[in-house]
Amino acid sequence: MKANEVPQDKSSLDSINQKELCYATDESGNYITTKSSGWTPKTIALNNAIEDIKERAEEAKQRVLNNETSPIEYYMELNRMDVTILAGYVGIWPFRVKRHFNPKRFKKLSDKLLQKYADAFNISLKQLKQGDLNED
């Protein structure tokens, strides 16, 4: 890629006023470093990934409201996690996390364990228990 062909598209880097560094060639074919403000194909990929996560969180929310799953699954999706990552933060085996998606089991969980979940999600114990599914 030549330095003058380095893409300068709009991207989320604008939100923090940053550009990224790239390696490209100058007129005589020598490598130099230059800045790029972003590239649309990449921005689309990132946006799609975020959209997918939002969709999954929304689905989980509906299932919580229908009493088909526990708020743990919803907050997991909201925090862009999967079962393995969440299990890492809580410090238990992944299969246990999956079991805690069961609303009946969720109600029986101890405050001590729920607190660990709440910490992983950066919310309060009360918020997790009440299951008011606010986005922040």
Binding site: Y23, Y31, K42, A45, N48, A49
Partner: peptide
């Protein structure tokens, strides 16, 4: 989704397949 993921990993901030090839060059 899978294809997007491949591109995302390829072009993730400052890294990426294309980018790495240029650094190697």
């Amino acid at each position: 989704h899978y294809l997007g993921q491949i591109v995302r990993m390829q072009e993730e901030i400052g890294t990426g397949g294309g980018g790495f090839r240029y650094i190697f060059a």
